[in-house]
Design a protein around this nucleic acid. Structure first.
Lengths: 146, 146
DNA sequence: TTATAAAAGGACATACATGTCCTTTTATAA
DNA sequence: TTATAAAAGGACATGTATGTCCTTTTATAA
């Protein structure tokens, strides 16, 4: 299960992408409200994202958050990696340090399938692919389709 | 990803089962050492397990932890449910409160497959089925096969 | 019956994730 | 050039998971 911070981050990035497609650069307040997250905490997360170059920002009047051309294929893995680390893709489901194919814990084979399945999803899906679904009305970001 | 407490709990239960099959009732000290967990914290977790009837215990000299006949088919789900709750089997991967088949988040379909796959595993595998693999030498509980 | 060994339980300690508040920096509009 | 709006950043607050220590209860062996 992803951390709350990672969830906020992904939802925030998707919202920024949707607004960017409308030629807008949303600010912290607008983003926090839309993704239903605390404003000050959202600000911290957005800082992490820009510091790690997953997104750009502009200070000052008319500023806000946006993607530049190098940031238009941002996988969920990239976001998870930056916000909470990628332990969940390596860790043994049983909690053993030395668990591997040669020295498997009793859950190894089954767990690996699930874990790798999740890895595949987050390596395939991007902020843009998710945003596209919302734009097309196939999915929602919050309560109602916009 | 399961919590550390849940990992300890599952490893502890498996070890108790293995020892029970050898007609032994391990105590906190022996269990904690084997599963490489802090002793006092392990004691707390074992308390939770016995209080919730996942396992039995005897106080006093010669006491320790063991399974009775009603506890010989303990699914991993039962353990997870008691130790950390089952939010991970219900929660939206995106963090949306209102995400469901009719109102899906953009990750809904793919995430559901992974989440349900994990649910299937923990509903199928039991402390006893995992212990059996270790007993048969097909898997390990810690560093080396015993 | 008493000493001992073991689980149970309460109170406290620590670490990390989450959340808040206030100040500083910076870009733009007037 | 100055006032303003916005992100960046530092310091602090709260909550929850994890971990420790000490006392109480209870079963057994001597």
């Amino acid at each position: 299960m992803l951390s709350k911070s990672t969830e906020y981050a992904i939802r925030a990035l998707v919202f920024v992408q949707l607004r960017n497609w409308e030629q807008k650069r949303p600010g912290v307040g607008e983003i926090a409200k839309e993704i239903e997250a605390p404003e000050a905490y959202t600000a911290k997360i957005l800082q992490t994202l820009t510091k790690n170059k997953l997104m750009d920002s502009m200070k000052g009047r008319g500023g806000g958050f946006f993607f530049n051309d190098n940031q238009s294929n941002l996988t969920l893995y990239d976001v998870i990696h930056v916000v909470e680390g990628d332990a969940c893709f390596h860790k043994c489901g049983f909690g053993l340090k030395q668990c591997n194919n040669d020295n498997p814990c009793p859950l190894h084979e089954q767990y690996k399938i699930v874990r790798d399945g999740f890895f595949e999803i987050v390596k395939t899906e991007t902020i843009q692919s998710l945003s596209e679904k919302i734009k097309q009305g196939e999915a929602v970001l919050n309560r109602l389709k916009k």
